[in-house]
Amino acid sequence: MTNRMLIIDSPSHNAFFNIASEEYLLYKYPKADIFLLYINAPSIIVGKFQNTLAEINLDYVNQQNIKVVRRMSGGGAVYHDMGNLNFSFHTLLESNDFMDFSTFTQPVVNVLNSMDVPAKLEGRNDLLVAGKKFSGNAKFAKNGKMVQHGTILFDSEMQVLVDALQVNPLKFVDKAVKSNRARVTNLIEYLPENTTITILKRRLIAEILKNNVDAQIYEFNEEDIQSIEKLVKEKYETWDWNFGTSPHYNFKKAVKIPAGFIEIHLDVDKGFIRKAKIFGDFFASLPIEDLEQVLIGQKHSLERIAQLFDRIDLTAYFGKVNQDEILDLFK
């Protein structure tokens, strides 16, 4: 069984579960070729080497309950929702060229071409139709395997995509990989009428079965699900993985509130504040340096900073302010 290609249609719409399943399968089936398909409820998937906070609109993401999860591959941040089909190929590393994206995007191109959609691979790792991108692809190597995964924008909510990934570029100074926001489009505009994401998924599975005679459909069993959920709890839904592993960055933000103008500069390493400097024209009864010192060593996380502020009289440092006004500085 381990030498036959396994085709897996994930039963979950949880981004934490589906991204974790990619790592789980590397170790569960170290020799097998695997074709994994999944659809995630609204979520942002950030590249391994990215600064998560610099890629997402944190306020909007929190308001909309959009999950944020870091994947194991490089590249840029992408938005997933129920109108977005994701595919993932796992194969032995030594039998494939790591920089070749065409082999594993070709089945997608074939299926779409057969439906009269003029899709093609352009550049290194993007699939385009009529000059607009509908699929970005990334890959990584681990445990002797190579994993290439990609998105297919079928009928995604484009405005949510834009709003969720809209970040103030002046807040962050870092060397992390920045996402390239190409012109994107949904495939539904080009596909035959009444085509659903389920139909597209079935066509893709049929294409893989046609070209891999020994392939078989595999369903996650209870042991698989429990193991993946354990990995989710220990890694993929944790702050440490999704935010804390962000590269070193400098963060700055200014607000104008009734108490005055306040500007904060943070030096953040692996998600923790290493230096803090606060400027402004506010009036304070306690030295602002004392508050700066309290911030050092804390997570650059709104939840953690809010907990900290619950125990501090902020009016002693800034005058007549409320907690939300000062918390806004850290977003």
Rank of each mutant, 00 (worst) to 15 (best):
R304H: 13
L286Y: 10
L291S: 08
E292F: 07
L302N: 07
D281A: 08
K299L: 05
F279L: 13
L302W: 07
I296W: 03
E289N: 10
F279Q: 11
L308Q: 08
G280E: 06
E292Y: 03
S285V: 14
Q307Y: 12
S285M: 09
L286I: 12
F282W: 03
L308Y: 04
I288E: 14
H300Q: 11
S285H: 10
L295P: 05
V294K: 14
Q307A: 08
H300M: 06
V294A: 01
L291P: 09
A284R: 11
H300E: 01
G280M: 13
L308M: 10
Q298I: 04
D310N: 15
G280S: 11
D281N: 15
E289A: 10
K299P: 00
S301N: 14
L291T: 01
F282A: 05
R304W: 02
D310P: 02
S285D: 11
L295M: 03
L286M: 14
G297H: 13
H300W: 03
D281V: 09
L286S: 15
G280N: 10
P287H: 04
P287V: 04
Q293P: 00
S301M: 01
S285F: 12
S285A: 07
H300S: 02
H300P: 00
A284D: 01
I296F: 09
L302M: 12
A306K: 08
F282K: 04
A306D: 11
F282C: 14
A284H: 12
E303H: 15
D290F: 12
A284I: 07
G297W: 08
Q307M: 06
V294H: 06
E289C: 02
S301L: 02
Q307D: 15
L302I: 06
D290A: 15
F282R: 06
D281C: 13
A284G: 15
L291V: 07
Q307P: 02
F309M: 05
K299N: 03
D281T: 13
G280K: 06
E303I: 13
L302H: 06
V294N: 07
Q298N: 14
L302E: 07
Q293I: 00
P287A: 03
A306C: 10
I305N: 04
E292H: 02
E292D: 01
Q293E: 04
S301I: 00
D310I: 00
F283P: 01
A306M: 09
S301D: 09
I296Y: 05
H300R: 05
E292N: 08
G297N: 02
K299S: 02
E303G: 10
A306F: 06
R304I: 13
E303Y: 11
F309C: 08
S301Y: 09
S285Q: 08
D290S: 13
Q298D: 10
G297I: 00
G297R: 09
G280V: 05
H300L: 04
F309H: 12
D281I: 12
Q307S: 15
E289P: 01
P287W: 15
Q307F: 10
I288Q: 05
L295W: 08
E292G: 01
E289F: 03
Q307R: 11
K299F: 01
E303C: 05
E292S: 04
K299D: 00
D310A: 08
L291H: 09
S285I: 15
E289G: 09
Q298M: 09
L291M: 10
S285K: 15
